[in-house]
């Protein structure tokens, strides 16, 4: 036997299995993309709320926000995911794995996003909000008209980066049985005994999505700079 190292018959690489599996993999990739997008969206909302609460909500809010950020940045995502997956049913909320996964991704992302916004807010010159205050702007409009629009523009590169990170992290939700790209690759390679080819294909798909996201990020950045 000169080929087929692992006791598999025939040549060691067979690309036809990739073509056979491709429709399934691409379908699963779509799931990966929208789960990640929902996670990022949720993360945006949470991150923004936490950031604003920490900046303007007094000491207690700042401390609670600090604990939240520290916890979700310090604990591995896999553990957060299992925590939410097992915790929600305990407090009476029975959710499908998909919802638990999006919640976990959103909570984790929110912690990072709130720090991104904090950094961006610090980059907005302090004089601007003082000037607005002197002009009699109410607190709310200082946030919505002066601070946040600028903070958002400053934070675009970091937010795109966060989206790419979350897309990669979403591979972990395969553990709770969500049929996204990683899980589907596992299922397929368990059926056809071709893990090398299938995981290579999955890796290429992840790479392509991330490449597209990075490109999209550059375009948005350029657009915002012109504006």
């Amino acid at each position: 036997m000169d080929r087929g190292f692992a006791g598999i018959e025939g040549p060691s690489m067979k690309f036809s299995v990739i073509i056979d599996a491709l429709p399934h993999l691409l379908g699963a990739a779509v799931t990966t993309v929208w789960v990640s997008l929902l996670g990022v969206l949720l993360g945006q909302v949470i991150g923004l709320a936490v950031c604003v609460a920490r900046q303007s909500g007094g000491r207690a809010a700042d401390m609670a926000g600090g604990v939240y950020v520290s916890f979700f940045r310090g604990v591995p995502l896999l553990i957060q995911l299992l925590l939410i997956y097992y915790m929600l049913p305990l407090i009476g909320i029975d959710v499908p794995p998909l919802v638990a996964s999006i919640a976990a991704l959103g909570l984790a992302s929110g912690a990072y996003v709130s720090e991104i916004y904090r950094g961006a807010l610090n980059a907005v010159p302090h004089g601007q909000s003082e000037a607005a205050l002197a002009l009699g702007f109410p607190d709310r409009s200082i946030w919505t008209r002066i601070l946040l629009p600028q903070a958002f523009r400053i934070s675009v590169p970091a937010l795109v980066n966060e989206l790419i990170l979350l897309l990669k992290a979403s591979s972990l939700i395969s553990v709770v049985g969500v049929a996204e790209l990683t899980r589907t690759s596992q299922t397929i390679s368990a059926a056809n005994y071709r893990p090398l080819e299938i995981y290579l294909a999955a890796g290429v798909i992840y790479l392509a999505i991330n490449g597209a996201l990075a490109l999209f990020g550059t375009l948005v950045e350029r657009r915002l700079q012109q504006a």
């Binding site: 190292f5 690489m13 990669k168 992290a169 893990p195 995981y199 999955a202 790479l207």
Partner: peptide, 20 residues
């Protein structure tokens, strides 16, 4: 940097035997 760590692990651990 563009692929998930989990996929890299699967490739190494499950895919590795296919190339010896």
């Amino acid at each position: 940097r563009g692929t998930p760590f989990l996929i890299q692990l699967f490739l190494l651990y499950s895919g590795g035997p296919s190339i010896g």
